[in-house]
Nucleic acid binder design. Sequence first.
DNA 1: CCCTGTTGTTCTATATAATGAACTTCAATT
DNA 2: AATTGAAGTTCATTATATAGAACAACAGGG
Lengths: 111, 111
Amino acid sequence: MIGQRIKKLRERKGYSITELASLAEVSKSYLSYIERNLQNNPSLQFLTKVAGPLDTTIEYLLGNNDSEEKLDKEWRILIQNGIEEGMSKEDFRNFKDFVRFQKWKRNKEEG
Amino acid sequence: MIGQRIKKLRERKGYSITELASLAEVSKSYLSYIERNLQNNPSLQFLTKVAGPLDTTIEYLLGNNDSEEKLDKEWRILIQNGIEEGMSKEDFRNFKDFVRFQKWKRNKEEG
DNA sequence: CCCTGTTGTTCTATATAATGAACTTCAATT
DNA sequence: AATTGAAGTTCATTATATAGAACAACAGGG
């Protein structure tokens, strides 16, 4: 979660919540909430403000930079084979959209 | 600015504001504001919701484009999104077989 | 021409992000 | 022991992000 990452970076740099809040020009109360995940939907502006003094980027704070490891082995083999057999990204996109459409339609019909 | 990027991706995929809003489960009014930069401080939740149907990531929406190894990355994002949207390996296998069949058929017709 | 359903927009209302002050501990002075 | 200040938390309030409804402009069909 994003709160832990902020807290970790903050402590690594030796800042207190109060200090970081002051440097980033956000309120320490809100920063406290975020670190403890009592609130977990910060805005872009908040994140950029905080990322600065922590010498990091929003991307890192989001922590989504390891997508390559998320795909399991079986999936990789499947995709690899698909590509070798001539499947294009466009093909796949269309199929994916179709799956989503089916799902969306189902949900809609169920209310 | 983030609004333009969302709009561009949306139009590339042929979605209307209404459609994308529905797929992403956000309000079309707010989406409209964002695209026109009448509001420009969306939350994390909003961005993740919108990134999904656009087959992209928050990082891209933010415009920090260090797109090395973009091809593989793009594939990974596609698959990742597909999985999160409930596509099963079985689904994918069927689709892959179908693509192969199409290709085979085309070759056959051309002699 | 009139529907019916889209498009995207602008209202108004509500939920909640974000703030600042008050508060509690605790450590370090004196 | 009394005091000072900094720590992080919680309260009460304000600002604003987001939603939902109503709107106008337009497209195609009957």
